[in-house]
Design a protein around this nucleic acid. Structure first.
Lengths: 222, 222
DNA sequence: CCAAAAGTGTTCACCGTACACCCATGA
DNA sequence: TCATGGGTGTACGGTGAACACTTTTGG
């Protein structure tokens, strides 16, 4: 009854990296340099090594293919339908993460990726494998977590204004929010701290800058 | 760059089956008939066949080992830490499901399971592998979904009384609920339909029986 | 001085919560 | 007749939603 008598599937990770750029929710794709789906856009990711933790494998592939490192991944879902990869049976464990806009200079096109680029979710190209389905699953998860978690903060740098945070919420949901209600709700929740600093120089009134109460931690609202 | 030059991990499924029995949340475990962890309690599950969908594999193993069939599984999480199985690298995709109490006569001990038994979550035995962690992850998911989904209905037969539904909620959360508020909230949500039938013979006033508005479907509250 | 984003309170409707008694039945 | 769960309404406080004007700066 031991398993290694039977053929094993390949196991890979795929990573959905979201950012907000030009007032749109965007996802990072790489152009595949090799078959199958050569030339098609695909999620960063790759095969897990035999003694490597799943999340570690995802982080490694992400850094190899995009240069992005030191971010917090959350497991999304595992896609294992036979036939989703034409080469062989591949089961992929999908992760997702959110990165701040304005730190895009670092994205590189690496080893086995011909190019990397941000794509607005509203206008995705045809993607390799079932990656469009993975992206849609990640989008739904993101929207669902938006109003019971502090997930939106991950789109912002360490210090940010309330206007920026509101804009993140508006871009993700597509719905405009009332400024006074938003501020009351967010500040009342108590997970933001006024840093005492302001941002000036925007040809308008300076904005107070806030930070998360426990930086780096994912704390929940209630 | 093709993957099959590299060793592949084994992929298995594990299934956390909850029920409510004796006013306690319980989980179905099998006693392992083979090494490793021979004689220890473990979740039903097993290796995925090379051309088999993940959920189909989970359903097959569940039926083989317990006789349970025709239930709705939901994917829980994928556990892949190296070393979690002493034989070789095994990545397991965990599923969970809820079955009605009072249908337990069918549970069998099958092929590679020496015995099957329900265990109250509050008093779990030592489990094989990392199955205690998988069970705890499933329990948290269940509690989290309780009040924004109709998941509790899955513990009940097609027709049920409001008292039974309230009891399900109380057992899962461990908190008592006010009867009038519970009924108001549940009936106001509009996913229950009065069947017109009653259940009598309990030495007390007969209870109206309800059913889900869309039987078999997982509809959400708001 | 003007454009642009920041900042600020009140009112109202609705919802969750607290709370106690009668009803229908089988034994 | 009595024990057992079934069934019902109201009052209150808190929370989310609607809504408009002043402030501060850079150009």
């Amino acid at each position: 009854m031991y398993s290694y008598r039977y053929p094993h599937p390949a196991v890979s990770t795929d990573i959905v990296i979201f950012t907000i750029l030009d007032d749109r929710l965007q996802v990072l794709l790489i152009r595949r340099a090799a078959a199958p789906f050569r030339g098609a856009w695909a999620l960063p990711g790759g095969f897990v090594e035999i003694d490597e933790d799943l999340e570690a494998g995802a982080l490694r592939e992400l850094e190899e293919e995009t240069g992005i490192r030191d971010i917090y991944l959350e497991q999304l879902y595992t896609f294992g339908q036979p036939g989703r990869d034409p080469r062989e049976r591949v089961i992929t464990v999908a992760y997702y993460a959110l990165v701040p806009f304005g730190q895009l200079g670092e994205i590189k096109a690496a080893s086995d990726a011909a190019a990397t680029a941000w794509h607005p979710l509203a206008r995705l190209p045809k993607t390799a494998f079932d990656h469009d389905r993975i992206i849609e699953t990640a989008r739904r998860r993101l929207v669902a977590k938006l109003d019971y978690s502090t997930i939106a903060l991950q789109f912002l740098p360490r210090r940010f204004s309330l206007g920026e945070l509101q804009q993140v919420h508006e871009v993700i949901t597509g719905e405009p929010l009332d400024k006074r209600n938003f501020r009351k709700r967010i500040l009342g929740a108590g997970f933001l701290v006024d840093t005492g600093k302001v941002r000036r120089g925007n040809r308008c009134r300076p904005a107070r800058l806030y930070r998360a109460r426990s930086p780096g931690k994912l704390s929940y609202l209630r």
